[in-house]
């Protein structure tokens, strides 16, 4: 190359020239192993401001609802102490309302983190990022699995952490009203773990919907339909079928899983676990298979 062109010719080479390689396409250097793809997906996850905002909102909502609920429960118990009618109602609730105070914001956490699950995948398609992602990982499944791991783990950790913080904030408030909350009790731990797993499951379902629908609004609407509209609709439609079917909605599996004793019109705990598992596995598998088959 003559010296006159050197200035305007960018050098794309790193340490080695590809001309030195054998021409058979065998590459020199590591390829996309699962851990590397996982690392990449985690970088993608934490470098989006919108993701961080959604995670922050989850914590704020969970802690805020925990505190509000602690206050409300305290007021309720005070009323119960003075008014026999309210006292009867209080007793009917099982007496120990305090234990579910830290997870009282879970309905909102599932909506936010479920939407995050949708967005993380649908935005790949709406922005065109998917072309970069799947050109780097043309087998596609490792990238899908890595993203799923990131979504599920973060949703679990954020829900568990914000439940814990909500608990710490609620204890002194409840204490004010003479109500005790032991965050280390087996029921407290059970509520924290089951609800965190549940929210992680919702996020996985969200991601599967985002992969299948590839559209943010459509994915989130489907999620809302499944978790918020269907339970109400099933309740309004008369007929035994819908009473029965309602039990199998993913949103109605948490109650039997965390109940101290079996409640009427709900599944057994082991059934609920299986139903929730199926609600995750079926859409995720379908999404994974179709993602591999469809054009990006």
């Amino acid at each position: 190359m003559s010296s006159t062109t050197v200035e305007s010719t960018p050098s794309p080479r790193g340490a080695e020239t590809p001309a030195q390689r054998s021409g058979d396409g065998s590459s020199s250097g590591p390829g996309p192993s699962f851990l590397r793809v996982l690392n990449s997906e985690f970088i993608k996850f934490r470098t989006l401001l919108s993701t961080l905002i959604l995670l922050g909102s989850t914590v704020v909502v969970m802690v805020g609802f925990g505190a509000l609920s602690a206050w409300g429960t305290g007021q309720f118990s005070q009323a119960a102490a003075q008014d026999p009618e309210a006292g009867a109602r209080f007793a009917a609730q099982g007496g120990d309302l305090a234990v579910s105070v830290p997870t009282s914001g879970i309905a909102f956490a599932q909506l936010i983190l479920g939407s995050l699950g949708v967005l993380l995948m649908s935005s790949e398609f709406t922005t065109g990022m998917a072309r970069s992602t799947f050109a780097a990982v043309p087998k596609r499944t490792p990238a899908f699995a890595a993203k799923l791991v990131v979504v599920v783990l973060t949703s679990f950790v954020i829900t568990a952490a914000s439940t814990l913080v909500a608990g710490f904030v609620s204890v002194p408030i409840l204490d004010n009203y003479g109500l005790g909350l032991d965050l280390g009790s087996s029921q407290s731990v059970k509520l924290l773990v089951v609800n965190s797993i549940y929210v992680a499951a919702v996020a996985a379902i969200g991601m599967a919907l985002g992969t299948l629908i590839r559209n943010s609004a459509g994915g989130i609407m489907s999620l809302v339909g499944l978790f918020f509209v269907a339970p109400i609709a099933f309740q309004l439609i008369p007929g035994d079928f819908f009473v029965e079917a309602r039990k199998y909605l993913p949103g109605n599996t948490v109650e039997p899983l965390t109940a101290v004793e079996h409640l009427p019109d709900t599944l057994e705990a082991w059934q609920a676990g299986l139903v929730l598992g199926a609600w995750v596995v079926v859409p995720v598998l379908l999404a994974g298979i179709l993602l591999k088959k469809r054009d990006v």
Binding site: T127, M129, P138
Partner: peptide
């Protein structure tokens, strides 16, 4: 180089492509 891209051990080190200037998440 003899095999489809999915068959390459390290696709990014073998084939680099600009397919679309906007194949990037706009918020990143």
């Amino acid at each position: 180089n003899g095999s489809p891209l999915a068959g390459h051990a390290a696709p990014l080190r073998d084939v680099g492509a600009l397919l679309d200037a906007k194949a990037v998440h706009t918020s990143r």
